[in-house]
């Protein structure tokens, strides 16, 4: 009898989640172009006053669905069972990061929603919420960096005839980890490439995360049927 593991369902749900993420990204008026950390409190307050509805709807969408990445991360963890490791320790490292990374983003959405809840608040208070939202969103990369590095190490250690993921996936993950590093330093600049609206901290970081999700879902998609074939051959 054919059993459904459900893994394919999780993977197929990812494009739906991705559409919602992209929609929320374009709906939030603070991303295109990204808000400047150099804005005066009155400008920040005016932004929340002018775009209250779009900020609320986009951040509610992100709040609902940013954690939808977790099941996909767990699919990766499940693939890691097939790696030629002697201990489950790399999987535990991944699980440890998998919860924290989306929760960091969820925390950022809460700060943005708080700022939009009372747009007529004192401008300095709105700026404070806005700062907390942007810093959490931009600098909150430690778990994403670690996750990519753990995955890369896991793939390097998976020395078998037919490794679960190709070696290039490890190099790709190292590259993504490197691309995320500058965002951690966004607090140091109010303008330029390092600032939270800058080339490195905003564009490179977010494109790296988007690329990671796309590449890993393709790689996962290719790893799933192989497992099914192995299971069917064994049956």
């Amino acid at each position: 009898m054919r059993r459904t593991s459900g893994e394919l369902i999780i993977l197929c749900a990812l494009p739906a989640a991705a559409i919602l993420w992209i929609a929320a990204f374009f709906l939030f008026p603070g991303f295109l172009p990204p808000m400047s950390p150099g804005s005066a409190p009155s400008e920040v307050a005016a932004f929340y006053g002018d775009h209250t509805a779009r900020i609320r709807y986009s951040m509610i969408l992100f709040n609902w669905f940013c954690v939808a990445l977790i099941p996909v991360l767990m699919l990766i963890v499940e693939r890691m069972r097939g790696m030629a490791h002697r201990t489950p320790i790399m999987r535990y490292c991944m699980i440890g990061c998998a919860g924290a990374a989306p929760i960091a983003f969820l925390t950022a959405t809460i700060f943005w929603l708080l700022a939009a809840f009372r747009p007529d608040r004192a401008p300095e208070l709105t700026q404070l919420y806005n700062d907390l939202g942007w810093i959490t969103f931009t600098c909150g990369v430690p778990f994403l960096v670690a996750q990519s590095l753990f995955l890369a190490v896991s793939i390097f250690l998976d020395q078998q005839e037919k490794p679960v993921f190709g070696r290039w996936v490890a190099y790709f993950n190292v590259l993504v980890a490197v691309a995320l590093v500058p965002a951690g330093f966004a607090g140091l600049a109010h303008s330029g490439v390092l600032a939270w609206d800058g080339l490195l901290s905003f564009w490179v970081k977010n494109i790296a995360i988007a690329l990671w999700i796309i590449v890993m879902s393709v790689v996962l998609g290719r790893a799933l049927p192989r497992d099914r074939a192995v299971a069917e051959a064994a049956a």
Partner: peptide, 24 residues
């Protein structure tokens, strides 16, 4: 503060190794 916590923002996820080894 800015430089120090930037380092934690980048490398703080390494804390997972301690959790993982203890879990193991």
């Amino acid at each position: 503060l800015l430089v120090g916590f930037a380092l934690i923002f980048v490398l703080g996820g390494l804390s997972a190794t301690s959790i993982a080894l203890i879990t193991y």
